[in-house]
């Protein structure tokens, strides 16, 4: 199971980076989203995947899930949610004011 999840995370990273290297702004934003999903899946996998095991450690319990990765993912998801929404607004504003959403045309050397 872990192997499949690791491969899936790898695929998410690859597609994310492919999108990140595109010229169109929206594709870049989607790329960052995919990468963060890959990262979250990866944390979950690293904490070992088990079915039917509660995240409790007490006497007599032999099979338990590590609760820490889940807490970490939750924090990380909230953060990436906030950043992605900010990025969407910023990308919209930038393309509107600069009149293009093509990164090639957004090089520029003029500064105010």
């Amino acid at each position: 199971m872990e192997i499949i999840m690791a491969i899936l995370a790898g695929i998410l990273f690859t597609t994310g980076i492919y999108n990140l290297l595109q010229k169109q702004l929206l594709r870049i934003v989607i790329g960052t989203g995919l990468i963060s999903h890959g990262a979250h899946l990866f944390i979950l996998t690293m904490g070992e995947l088990k079915t039917g095991a509660p995240p409790i450690l007490s006497e007599g319990v032999e099979k338990y899930t590590d609760p820490l990765p889940q807490a970490l993912i939750l924090t990380s998801i909230v953060i990436s949610f906030g950043v992605t929404s900010l990025l969407l607004v910023l990308a919209y504003r930038t393309s509107k004011i600069n009149g293009t959403d093509n990164m090639e045309q957004m090089r520029g050397t003029d500064y105010e």
Binding site: L20, L25, I28, T32, I35, S36, G38, A39, H40, F42, I43, T45, M46, P69, L72, S76, I79, S80, V83, L86, L87, L90, A91, R93, T94, I97, N98, M106, G108, D110, Y111, E112
Partner: peptide
């Protein structure tokens, strides 16, 4: 120009943050 530059700043930092999480994992 400011918006044009800030989107690059946000993107590079976002990417390295995601890598940070992966590394912690």
């Amino acid at each position: 120009a400011q918006l044009r530059e800030s989107i690059k700043y946000v993107l590079i930092n976002l990417f390295s943050s995601m890598l940070f999480v992966t590394t912690i994992a």
